[in-house]
Design a protein around this nucleic acid. Structure first.
Lengths: 211, 211, 211, 211
DNA sequence: TATGAATGAGCTTTCATTCAT
DNA sequence: TATGAATGAAAGCTCATTCAT
């Protein structure tokens, strides 16, 4: 429906991933049966097995596609100097990445359990920890490390928690990003004398143009 | 082994919940079979049905037990004036609650999907949103609302993200709490002129006894 | 049909084995589906899984039951002196065992492939080789070793090859046994000088009551 | 590897048979899937269907190739007088045939079940019975008939049973052949007085009362 | 307060086979 | 002389659930 059989030729693999992404995101991996996926695509279960070796294979292939932008961001981050500017840029890019990756993150959250026994290094958790390692300074006081981490996680959870708030999505994203950058600045206030030198300047800069 | 058959008398219901909590937390609700639970308890599957009507019943019963402290905290919060102090106290108590509720929160996170179709008002998400409504001021600028929410969520995610950091757990908890209270203070800086206007009063109180 | 549900209580496991033995023997293990077995028993497939963990488990359990008499014979043989008399007795007992074990040997022959990857020591082949080691003298000339082995195998193959001969089964068995004992005697003729050197002493003892 | 794509031109049919022979011999017909065969040949399953109409067709084609030498031997035997000499020659030729036909006999043994429902006259069993009819004299006493049959079957089973014996294969074959010829001679002792009455009577006495 | 025995529905996966290209 | 893409049927197996005892 909506696409003729002819139009489907050659894109079945992609269509399987799309439908699976959607269903795994809605119901979770375990609850979603291959029958369900096949029916929605109007193909047989066996057709799925022409394109993927196992059900888990579908999961993995989706995950890898979704994780690629994140991996690229991590690679970029690792190649940069560990300055505040780098961190800010990481957070900004991450925020943008999140914007149109919401479905995947729904998918991830729903399927943590299913993916936790994949090969190490293959999970979202690994990526998140790698990311937070770029944002946090192991020498800094614990509170500042927490702020570094939080800059990252706030972007996830806030986006989620504000879903039901009726405000312009872009407004929301910017507000969240501002808070994240704020946390980052606070986390680095002490080690950046140039920024914190104003005698009574609060360790929270007013970030007038945070974006 | 570890508990004699005699010792088991009469506490089977509790033992089922304990084992289920553990397995649901590790593998997720869908992936955990009643056979597995029964085997670990060295009883038959049929025995589980003496104590619970369905598998979902086990899930619900666990959830309700775990949610009770949170519900009490919410009730308390709703009865208090909507002041910064109340919010701070909410966050402090929540932090303490989290401390020994980690297994359950693992359980919740793993099983969001499984519980999302329970009766509305029965989910963790509902509780979290209720909680964040107590911490956020709908009149305030978006950024400050984000800070309010974040005070709450930071406690979850940071605790999780710092799991692999080898530092005293209590130290970690305090550092996280401090950041959470910080966010709360910043969120309320503008609407609490009395607190933030003092020229040298940092908007981050030093919370010397934050605990 | 033929047995009421009540009468079946408690003997399902045995009935599964019986039917499986029959079908595995007729069609082979791979070709026989659990559905087929279940249908013939008028139970569901799931019922089979209450009694056996896997399909292979059914195969193994049948095999072990069938192999027991053979194992006992082997044990007996190992405890006896390695004399001609012992060997003759082994062959005689083996012949008797074969008599009412024909269905199982059909089963074995049909399912060699299916059982060849069982745990070593678990196969019929292992038993046969152990048996032939009791009948063969590694010091003897090759031809005599062949005769020793053949005494054993002749009993299998001849019984099979004469199936379509219309003669009294007991007559056939005795004829086959006689040939087997013959081979045995010939195999041991040289190493039993006392028995074979007497000018007119036949190297085939008169075993008057061979049965 | 081992054969370049060029070298493969035009011999695909043969290569399919070779691989199938090997896999059917190792795992049995039912357990071997067309996918497995195709993968090993690095072609697609569909390619198999260009060369053979069905899976069973592959089985049959292999069988027919393998059975041809046997059929020729049978034809030759049927054209000869039913003398001891003929029988001896049959056995000698059969022994030689077996020598480099071991893989096929493995194949046959593994796949008796699979082939038992082929058109009658198409099975190995049929050939074996035809062969044994040439070696056995229906008028002779049962014991002698058994000896006739055994001359044939001994060659199969002994070869198999001596696989793990570390001796020169040719030595083994000769020893087995000798025993087979021996059995044949004994089987025909009575009806061929000229052959057995010679003064230097063989070590096979006429076993007058063996029963 | 449990167990033994079973069921019906559904699961993931594999199979031999087909056919347009 | 093949391949890519698919199918219909069936396989082995697991699951939550039931019920007489």
């Amino acid at each position: 429906m909506g696409s003729t059989p002819q139009a489907r030729r050659g894109d079945t693999r992609q269509r399987i991933q799309d439908v699976a992404l959607e269903l795994f995101g809605e119901q979770g991996y375990e609850k979603t049966s291959l029958r369900e996926i096949a029916e929605r695509l109007e193909v047989t279960k066996a057709a799925l097995y022409y394109h993927f070796k196992t059900k888990e294979d579908i999961l993995i292939s989706i995950f890898q596609d979704l994780a690629r932008p994140l991996d690229e961001l991590l690679d970029w981050g690792r190649g940069q100097p560990r300055t505040l500017e780098t961190k800010q840029e990481l957070v900004r890019r991450y925020s943008l990445a999140l914007e149109n990756a919401l479905p995947l993150f729904r998918f991830m959250q729903q399927n943590q359990a299913a993916m936790s026994h994949l090969r190490p290094g293959e999970t979202l958790k690994d990526r998140m920890l790698a990311m937070s390692d770029l944002l946090r300074d192991p020498e800094a006081p614990l509170t500042d490390q927490v702020r570094g981490l939080s800059a990252l996680f706030v972007m996830h959870t806030a986006q989620f928690a504000m879903q039901h708030l009726e405000a312009d999505p872009e407004e929301k994203r910017k507000a969240i990003l501002e808070v994240a950058l704020d946390l980052l600045a606070q986390a680095n206030a002490r080690e950046k004398p140039g920024a914190s030198e104003a005698p009574d300047a609060p360790n929270i800069p007013d970030t007038p143009d945070a974006r």
